[in-house]
Deep mutational scan, measured.
Amino acid sequence: EVYKVKIKIERVLPNGEKVEEEITIEVEGMSEEELLALARELAAEPGVRIKEIEIEKLPP
Rank of each mutant, 00 (worst) to 15 (best):
K57T: 08
E45S: 09
M30Q: 12
M30Y: 07
E1L: 11
I53R: 00
N15T: 14
L35N: 01
E54N: 15
K57H: 07
L13Q: 11
R11F: 03
G16R: 01
E56H: 15
A43G: 10
E26H: 05
I55Q: 01
G47K: 01
P46G: 06
R11D: 00
V19T: 08
E45P: 03
E28A: 07
E28D: 07
E26W: 09
L42R: 06
P46W: 05
E28Y: 06
I9Y: 10
L38K: 11
L42N: 02
K57E: 04
E1I: 14
E17H: 12
V48I: 06
E22P: 01
R40E: 10
K4R: 15
V27C: 12
E41K: 12
K57G: 08
V27T: 07
Y3M: 04
E45Y: 06
L13W: 08
L38W: 13
V5P: 00
S31N: 07
L42C: 09
E22S: 07
E28S: 04
L38D: 01
A43T: 14
V5R: 00
R49I: 10
N15L: 03
E56L: 13
E33R: 14
G29W: 08
I53F: 05
L58D: 02
E54W: 11
E17D: 09
K4Y: 04
E54F: 13
I55L: 09
I7L: 08
E32I: 12
L36D: 07
V48S: 04
I9L: 10
P14E: 07
A44Q: 12
E1S: 15
E21M: 04
E54H: 12
V12Y: 08
P14N: 10
E54Y: 14
E17T: 12
K57N: 04
K4M: 09
E34D: 10
L42A: 11
L35R: 02
K6C: 05
E56W: 07
P59S: 14
V2A: 14
R49V: 14
N15F: 05
E1H: 13
E52H: 12
K57F: 06
K51T: 13
I53T: 01
Y3N: 01
E21Y: 08
I50S: 00
E1D: 14
A37I: 11
E17M: 08
A43D: 07
E52C: 08
I55R: 02
G47T: 06
V19A: 06
P60C: 12
I53E: 00
I50T: 01
K18G: 05
E32C: 10
G47C: 12
V2I: 10
R11Q: 02
E32L: 10
E45T: 13
E17A: 12
V48Y: 04
I53S: 00
G16P: 00
Y3W: 13
E22V: 15
E17L: 11
A43W: 06
E20T: 05
I53V: 06
K57D: 02
I50R: 00
T24I: 11
V27E: 04
A39H: 02
P46S: 10
Y3G: 01
L36Y: 10
K4T: 09
R40Q: 10
G16W: 02
R11V: 03
I50C: 02
E54M: 15
A44H: 08
M30W: 13
V48Q: 02
G29Q: 11
L35Q: 02
L36S: 04
I25Y: 14
A37N: 12
P60M: 04
E41M: 07
E20Y: 10
V48A: 04
L42W: 12
A39S: 04
E10I: 04
E33M: 12
I25A: 04
A39W: 08
V27N: 03
G16Q: 04
E22A: 10
L36G: 07
P46M: 10
L36M: 15
G47I: 01
V2R: 13
K57P: 06
E41T: 10
T24R: 05
E28W: 12
E1V: 12
V12Q: 13
K6W: 10
E20H: 07
E17W: 05
V27Y: 11
A39N: 01
A43Q: 05
K51N: 04
A43N: 08
P14Y: 04
E56D: 07
P14K: 06
T24C: 09
I9G: 00
Y3C: 03
A43Y: 12
E17S: 06
E21W: 11
K51L: 15
V2K: 15
A43I: 14
I25Q: 03
E10K: 01
I53P: 00
A43M: 11
K8G: 02
E20D: 14
E41W: 03
T24Q: 04
A37G: 13
E10W: 02
R40H: 05
G16C: 04
I23G: 00
P14H: 13
L42D: 01
E20S: 04
L13N: 09
E41F: 14
E41I: 10
K6L: 11
I25D: 01
S31G: 09
L58K: 07
I50L: 09
P14I: 05
L58E: 04
K51F: 08
G29F: 05
E28R: 02
L38H: 07
E32Y: 13
I50Q: 00
K51G: 02
V48C: 01
E41R: 14
